[in-house]
Simulated scan of single mutants.
Amino acid sequence: MNTPKRFIQRKVDVAEADKTRTHGPVADRPHPSGGAVFLAGVAGSGRGDLGRLAAERLGIPFRSYKEWEAAGRDRAVVALDDADILREGGPERVRSQGTVFYLMSGVPAVAERLAQAHPGEDAERLRALAAERFFAAEPVFMGALHFLLQGFRPAEEQVRDLLEKLSL
């Protein structure tokens, strides 16, 4: 499928002539530049792999939330889970400190990653735990996000998408 990369950066005319809006570089930024780059997601969503790759491309460190706090909240790629977001003061507080990407991985992908990380564990039990965590945490992540990343895509595609979104 061949879709335009920057289709949203056009002037769009609507039925009422006085209701036009231009989207793109001149529009207000939907996220603060220069802050942390937060990767929010449940355990097994791929935050670590994507975070290390994104940090390397951006030339900044990759940190867990606790490491980021200990480092003085520096410019870094930071892995967050829902408990970190709530500990930080909620979704709005996190959004104000950087750009939040929700790495949305479905239950099957999360369960598969957890099974790889914990060989010998009961696969059905891991799937049930993944489903429980996913559905409990998703509202927190959705409230915090600036951008959504599709967790089922390869990390290389995700990091390209992340870098493109950071440049908006």
Rank of each mutant, 00 (worst) to 15 (best):
residue 118 H to N: 14
residue 106 G to M: 01
residue 130 A to F: 04
residue 93 R to M: 02
residue 164 E to C: 03
residue 94 V to H: 02
residue 44 G to F: 03
residue 121 E to W: 07
residue 71 A to M: 10
residue 132 E to Y: 03
residue 3 T to M: 13
residue 10 R to C: 12
residue 25 P to K: 13
residue 146 H to N: 07
residue 6 R to M: 12
residue 48 G to I: 02
residue 148 L to Y: 02
residue 16 E to H: 13
residue 24 G to R: 07
residue 163 L to N: 08
residue 31 H to G: 00
residue 149 L to M: 09
residue 22 T to P: 04
residue 110 V to M: 05
residue 96 S to K: 07
residue 36 A to E: 06
residue 75 R to M: 04
residue 167 S to D: 13
residue 148 L to V: 09
residue 39 L to C: 06
residue 145 L to Y: 01
residue 155 A to N: 11
residue 158 Q to L: 15
residue 110 V to T: 02
residue 93 R to F: 00
residue 99 T to E: 01
residue 31 H to M: 09
residue 107 V to S: 05
residue 8 I to M: 14
residue 113 R to Y: 11
residue 80 L to F: 04
residue 58 L to F: 04
residue 119 P to Y: 09
residue 17 A to W: 15
residue 115 A to M: 08
residue 167 S to W: 03
residue 60 I to R: 09
residue 141 F to M: 02
residue 66 K to R: 15
residue 130 A to E: 04
residue 3 T to W: 12
residue 92 E to L: 12
residue 78 V to E: 00
residue 11 K to P: 09
residue 97 Q to N: 07
residue 5 K to A: 14
residue 35 G to M: 00
residue 120 G to T: 10
residue 120 G to L: 10
residue 133 R to H: 12
residue 94 V to Y: 02
residue 129 L to H: 11
residue 105 S to I: 03
residue 71 A to N: 10
residue 118 H to Q: 14
residue 144 A to P: 00
residue 19 K to Y: 11
residue 10 R to Y: 10
residue 34 G to T: 03
residue 157 E to H: 10
residue 117 A to T: 08
residue 36 A to C: 08
residue 133 R to W: 06
residue 113 R to D: 10
residue 134 F to Q: 04
residue 60 I to C: 10
residue 12 V to C: 03
residue 88 E to L: 11
residue 129 L to G: 04
residue 17 A to N: 11
residue 60 I to N: 06
residue 10 R to T: 15
residue 66 K to L: 13
residue 81 D to G: 07
residue 149 L to T: 04
residue 156 E to T: 12
residue 160 R to C: 06
residue 103 L to T: 00
residue 76 A to I: 05
residue 141 F to P: 00
residue 7 F to Y: 13
residue 43 A to Y: 07
residue 121 E to F: 10
residue 144 A to F: 02
residue 5 K to Q: 14
residue 139 P to K: 08
residue 161 D to L: 12
residue 12 V to I: 15
residue 26 V to N: 12
residue 51 G to E: 07
residue 161 D to C: 11
residue 52 R to H: 11
residue 99 T to P: 01
residue 153 R to T: 02
residue 76 A to R: 01
residue 135 F to R: 13
residue 37 V to T: 06
residue 73 R to I: 01
residue 76 A to D: 05
residue 48 G to H: 07
residue 67 E to M: 08
residue 32 P to N: 07
residue 9 Q to G: 11
residue 115 A to I: 03
residue 23 H to W: 14
residue 18 D to A: 14
residue 51 G to F: 06
residue 80 L to E: 00
residue 120 G to W: 08
residue 162 L to R: 03
residue 116 Q to W: 07
residue 143 G to Y: 03
residue 63 R to G: 00
residue 56 E to Q: 15
residue 116 Q to A: 15
residue 6 R to I: 08
residue 92 E to W: 07
residue 41 G to N: 04
residue 147 F to S: 03
residue 159 V to K: 06
residue 150 Q to Y: 11
residue 74 D to G: 12
residue 14 V to T: 15
residue 97 Q to A: 12
residue 19 K to H: 12
residue 32 P to R: 11
residue 103 L to M: 03
residue 144 A to W: 01
residue 71 A to S: 14
residue 151 G to R: 02
residue 158 Q to S: 13
